[in-house]
């Protein structure tokens, strides 16, 4: 392994790591939003929306991200919708992640007994107050491990972004290997940068989980 090559490649990997993080964060944020809306539709048994979100969840969970990305990247222009790679990447991640987030929220909500909601309502809290102060704090602390796992899963999934010519970490590694055959250096940097992104999230996640566990659970 050549230190000089590593040093040369470092800025390239750093730049693509930034792209991975930026698009990943945006996609995950949108995925959380989609997840909240879908799980709310299911929790409150909203007519039509409940069925729609069920269909979406099956569709999203049972197709690979790569296929979803191809659909967005090559399919949408055929329908006259112009899409650039970054938008495709974020939209694809949100589409895939939305269902995983929805399932994480749903399992948390379902774990909180409905009598808790009734108990809050019987005190005269509004639906919104009962959700905000009683149900969601409990549901979130139950969902937290699944949510953290989803964030990590989705960030790893960004590695298929290169397929729609986004210059993410994977793209850079493949590109450099193809150009200069510095396979060892490229792969080393690839692994190091993924770890740099994912390890802090993993550690932060378990810290948050532990904190929540202290405060919550056990009636």
């Amino acid at each position: 392994m050549s230190i000089a090559v590593l040093r040369d490649y470092l800025p390239l990997f750093a730049r693509s790591a930034l792209l991975t993080v930026r698009l990943g964060a945006l996609g995950i944020l949108l995925a959380v939003l989609v997840g909240v809306l879908c799980s709310a539709a299911q929790y409150f048994r909203l007519p039509v929306l409940q069925q729609l979100s069920a269909v979406y969840i099956e569709l999203s969970r049972n197709t690979p991200l790569l296929v979803q990305l191809f659909f967005l990247y090559y399919g949408l222009p055929k329908l006259g919708i112009r899409t650039d790679p970054a938008v495709c990447g974020v939209a694809g991640l949100a589409f895939l992640g939305g269902s995983y987030m929805a399932e994480a929220f749903r399992s948390g909500l379902e774990a909180v007994d409905r009598v808790q909601l009734e108990s809050a309502l019987s005190l005269g809290l509004t639906n919104a107050q009962a959700m905000g102060s009683v149900i969601l704090p409990q549901a979130l602390s139950i969902s937290m491990p699944a949510l953290v796992a989803n964030v990590i899963f989705l960030l790893k999934e960004t590695s298929v972004f290169s397929a729609v010519s986004l210059m993410d970490l994977m793209f850079t590694a493949k590109d450099l290997i193809g150009l200069h055959y510095n396979t060892v250096e490229s792969l080393t940097l690839l692994v190091v940068f993924y770890l740099l992104i994912l390890l802090p999230i993993s550690i932060l996640g378990s810290l948050v989980e532990r904190r929540l566990r202290y405060a919550g659970s056990g009636t």
Binding site: D113, V115, E118, S119, L125, S133, Q138, T219
Partner: peptide, 25 residues
């Protein structure tokens, strides 16, 4: 209303359980 299964809010202290509704509602 008081329920058979208490239905205290497990994530809140006793004091916060009691003061939640007076403060919010």
């Amino acid at each position: 209303m008081v329920f058979q299964s208490y239905e205290l809010f497990p994530h809140l202290t006793v004091l916060d359980n009691v003061t939640l509704a007076p403060r919010k509602a």
